[in-house]
Amino acid sequence: MVILETRNLRKNYGSGETLVKALDGVNLQVQNGEFVAVVGTSGSGKSTLLHMLGGLDRPTSGEVYVDGKNIFALKDEELTIFRRRKIGFVFQQYNLLPTMNVYENIILPIGLDGNLPDEAYIREIVETLGLESKLKNLSVNLSGGQQQRVAIARALASKPAIILADEPTGNLDSRTSQDVLGLLKVSSERFGQTIVMITHNEEIAQMADRIVRIEDGKIVGAAND
């Protein structure tokens, strides 16, 4: 079953001579439960693609379907709500809220949706990610690896269908990278989530079920395991 699909996705920046085609007609399908790595050099358009997939930015043309729904047909507010229910993000810079502690960061998207957190589920995530002892800490006081694990926990907390990860290990040393990625993979398998991860690191990409290569805004080749 296709959970995520793009049709002829284009995104241009600038105009005239300075026109940059960040995405130039991308067609991509991701199956439910799949772990896809998108690789490409810096400036190839992979981050732009991820932003489009998550509905953070609107494309110049083309559509993105999540769970069969054309997300850009939604209004801004609807899109935000759709995003907090269906998609979890993990970023290179972690993007945790500095003023909140670890636990509060993790349950924030649930609270924003007006729901009470599923305590058992959250505990399971926290244990899987090894954050039990850090829950009361302010996120800024954690190491990079720990912060990224909190970000993953936050992404998983609202039980999204898809997790979008943008260079999740970009700021981490290789040992920690392996750990974090392992956890991401294990937890997504455990909780039945689809992962689309962006990386320029071939080694990291090898952990995915499928690798999609992108160059100059176009998909140039897809490799399956």
Partner: peptide, 15 residues
């Protein structure tokens, strides 16, 4: 940046 972040994790404009 902070408000952008909030938006990203799903805070709506009215929120």
């Amino acid at each position: 940046r902070f408000y952008g972040l909030l938006k990203m994790v799903g805070t709506t404009g009215s929120q």
